[in-house]
Amino acid sequence: MSLDPDQLPRRFAALTTTHVADACLRAGVPVRCAPAELRPVVAGGRMAGRVLPTRHVGSVDIFLEAIDRAAPGDVLVVDNAGRTDEACVGDLVVLEARAAGLAGLVVWGLHRDTVDIRAVGLPVFSLGATPTGPQRLDPRPADAVTSAQVGRWTVGPEDVALADEDGVLFLPGERVGELFDLAESIRDTERRQADRIRSGEPLRAQVGFGAYLAGRAENPALTFREHLRAVGGAIEE
């Protein structure tokens, strides 16, 4: 990882997943967003940390095994195949994760014990809640603690998970420093644009929208994104 793991939460504290997703676009890095249905259990929850992957097969021992080998600040990523017929994580797992110094949990599935999880306060993102736990015990796959699937994305310890109220985003660990630098630049540009709007200068004027329309009239293939890159706008990336 090009960024010290201890710096992750500090750098991300002044950013949003939106800024970082735009940075991925600008850097040509795949934007690996978890499906929008994955939402925070604790309002306002946000986290940043190395992915600690687990594939759930019906028993809590897989989580204890992963936590036992975790480093402080890791994010437990639970792959329960997006199932909505059972909860795979409850308050005891969340408590154990907090005691081990983890940054939070991403659950590709359901949780239970919502009131108790909120009382713990550790950030948890899941597909929702149901009262029942698993009534199965499936064979353990070979990659049970080395990779996890979240939506269409497969992630592992070489990845970083970021999460806030806009959702969950996965980054390649070796690109985190570069992407955070870009995200900070995008954030600063957007803040300046917002201040100018509040001061009475429309965004259309700031980005030369009239010039874009004139340019498009001459060259119908001209896209607004190309125009923004030329003038230094940041609203689309």
Rank of each mutant, 00 (worst) to 15 (best):
E178T: 15
R225P: 00
I62V: 15
S199A: 15
F180V: 11
D113P: 01
G128K: 07
V57Y: 13
L127E: 02
I117F: 06
A142W: 01
P172S: 02
P30C: 00
T54Q: 12
G232P: 11
G215H: 12
D159R: 01
E226W: 01
T54G: 11
G109I: 03
C33Y: 11
V145W: 04
A70V: 06
E174Y: 01
Q7V: 03
V20L: 01
R83S: 13
Q206L: 05
R112I: 01
A66W: 04
L110A: 04
V176G: 09
V29H: 00
A142N: 01
P9S: 06
L162S: 02
R118E: 15
L15F: 13
E184K: 08
P131R: 04
L171R: 04
D166H: 14
D4Q: 04
D61Y: 13
H19F: 14
P157R: 15
A21K: 05
A36F: 13
D74G: 08
E65G: 04
D143L: 05
L92N: 08
A217R: 14
P5Q: 03
V160I: 15
L222A: 08
H56M: 14
A87R: 07
T84Q: 12
L92S: 10
P35L: 13
I186F: 14
V20N: 02
G58A: 07
S2Q: 09
R39Y: 08
A163P: 01
A99Q: 09
P30M: 00
R225C: 04
T17P: 07
G28F: 09
F170P: 00
T16S: 15
Q149S: 08
P40A: 08
A71S: 12
A161F: 06
T18P: 00
V31S: 00
G101M: 03
P40R: 12
R46W: 13
V207N: 07
P35W: 14
P131S: 07
P35R: 11
